[in-house]
Design a protein around this nucleic acid. Structure first.
Lengths: 109, 109
DNA sequence: CGTGTAAGGAATTCTGACACG
DNA sequence: CGTGTAAGGAATTCTGACACG
């Protein structure tokens, strides 16, 4: 269970540098946010801040866009992935619950 | 041997955000660069870019400054640390050389 | 749909300098 | 020595809109 290295998820990179890092135009990056493909945070006065995770995701998006995949498809695929992750976690929890129950019963008998 | 996670050393953070992250004023950060305590990179037009490593180092510097340590002392201590690291690496290499020599000899006999 | 661009304003960053101490 | 500040300029970022397609 890796605790977030935090460097990867902390939102600290401005859009200009993200543009350099990804090769995308700032216009494209803003548009992908509008289409809810990425979720930068904002500084007090409204400037976008991105994480390295966002940068990687943008490179992923760029690759898909080059294949002609539309933004709404990219978003749907992404949400499906998230769902799968959720199920995994839930299954994991239920299993853990059963294990705990087993132990609980055998201990209290 | 951990290969640089690169998130930690990549220079992508602007001075304003570093200021928020560290609680230092941009004036202080610029001054510490002037005193050669940190070494940000520059964008094409000259804006400073820092890494998470730099941010951590700045928090370290801030702590020492609060203890009244002067910038030139902080720099000296830092260079001593770097020297020690160097020695370690060299010792390591020499040791490895001896080991290799041992193996070479025994194999060729 | 996805991206470029000009528009106008606000905030950022830069450097060199003066101030205080 | 270490840090604040006002100064002037350049570059960044933001939003909403028009353009093309």
């Amino acid at each position: 269970m890796t605790l977030d290295p935090s460097y990867k998820t902390k939102k600290v990179i401005t859009i200009g540098i993200v543009s350099e890092l990804t090769g995308l135009s700032v216009r494209q990056i803003r548009y992908y946010e509008e289409r809810k493909l990425i979720f930068p945070e904002r500084t007090e006065r409204g400037s976008r801040k991105f994480s390295f995770d966002d940068v990687e995701r943008l490179m992923d998006i760029a690759a898909k866009r080059e294949e002609g995949v539309q933004t709404h498809e990219i978003r749907q695929d992404y949400m499906r992935e998230l769902r799968k992750e959720e199920y995994k976690k839930i299954r994991q929890k239920m299993l853990q619950g059963q294990i705990n129950a087993q132990f609980g019963v055998s201990k209290n008998r």
